[in-house]
Design a protein around this nucleic acid. Structure first.
Lengths: 204, 204
DNA sequence: TGCAGGATTTGAACGATGTTCATTTTTGCG
DNA sequence: CGCAAAAATGAACATCGTTCAAATCCTGCA
């Protein structure tokens, strides 16, 4: 899986991920069919398994791409805002949380597959997949470091994780729609309120 | 599905839910096999579909039971604490959040199936399943009402939802273990910190 | 008691699905 | 051109959830 791929293989892999991405965006991860994907990229059914070990690996590769796009969205948001004062830090955290909400909403089914991945008991996440997740972290950690410079680094990391998780929870249940549909602006308001409240808690 | 069930049918249904609960607790919702369940309760394969419309309904019935047990756990936690002052309210919210964390940890796979339910596009959640979720709400709403009595009721409801969602997010990502395992005490600390910070935000 | 007829249970069969692998086809090179 | 290695093929397999005609059981009545 780590050996250098030939040009042709790389093109096939890209086409396969493209097709899977399209199908997931349209019908969710559960709607992926090996036969459909093979037809999509014009190869025989068995040929899939020359490109990818199984459909789980394909899900991981799509997720990797989704995480990449999410990272770009957060970067764009961060770059558009100053980060000098502590108020800047709070504003940035709010903006990043809002960007997260909007990305999730605009890429709902792809975003959901990020968390639907059920890897078997013993098997660990491949390193390239774990890296994608870790790359997101600095977006939260950087403003936080400015906000509470006195806090030791392990605590900062934990606080960043907690803040992200809290926002993630609001987004997750907010986009669920299983029970009640929460308007987008209400979600934005609640996220902003929570982020500001926790920031105030951190500062003093 | 609403017609009065005969005694025998009711016993079969209970046995079936028992078996499904055991298997989910052991291997997760994805490990449910119609053939295994039929064997577990000593009926033929096809007989399952005289008890339950499909495996999704069985998942819903197990989830209903899990939500019931979660409700009992939260009730026990609430009943053990006074609720007179605003500080009581904060303490109760912290305690409830901690109880939620522990329930999720102690019933990890059953708790996860609560959120893995993927009902098809058009079909809505049965009323009896939706009720189970709504029954949980007062546990958060009651202390909140004491904490911010001036807030109008829709805002209180939204705040309760947001607080619950935030805690839920911390619990979800904290028990994930996909990337890094967070110690239980650290999770408890972060939850308490977040709840207290948001409560301070609400009061002030 | 014996039997008719409805209710219940059965398990073989069906249609999908992911994955494998012997066979065929293509490719690359001396 | 020839031929070995690599890649592609698609039939076959094992497992699923679900269906349904047939077998079985049960119950009330003559």
């Amino acid at each position: 899986m780590n050996a250098p791929l030939s040009e042709r293989r790389q093109a096939q892999l890209t086409a396969l991920i493209d097709a899977a991405e399209r199908r997931i965006a349209q019908g969710g991860a559960a709607s992926l069919r090996a036969r459909d994907l093979a037809a999509d990229i014009g190869i025989a059914l068995g040929g899939l398994y020359n490109i990818v070990a199984d459909l789980d690996e394909l899900l991981l590769r799509v997720s990797s791409r989704t995480l990449g796009r999410l990272g770009e969205a957060l970067t764009a948001t961060s770059d558009a805002l100053p980060l000098e004062t502590k108020d800047d830090a709070v504003n940035r955290l709010v903006a990043i949380a809002h960007a997260y909400l909007h990305f999730a909403r605009d890429n709902l089914l792809l975003w959901r597959t990020l968390f639907e991945l059920h890897l078997a008991e013993g098997t660990a996440l491949p390193a390239w997949a774990a890296d994608d997740q870790l790359r997101l972290f600095p977006h939260v950690a950087a403003p936080l470091a400015l906000l509470v410079p006195n806090m030791d680094e392990p605590r900062q990391t934990l606080a960043a994780r907690t803040l992200f998780a809290a926002v993630h929870g609001i987004v997750t249940l907010g986009l669920e729609e299983r029970l009640v549909a929460v308007p987008l602006t209400a979600l934005e308001g609640q996220i902003e309120w929570l982020v500001r409240a926790t920031c105030r808690g951190l500062r003093g």
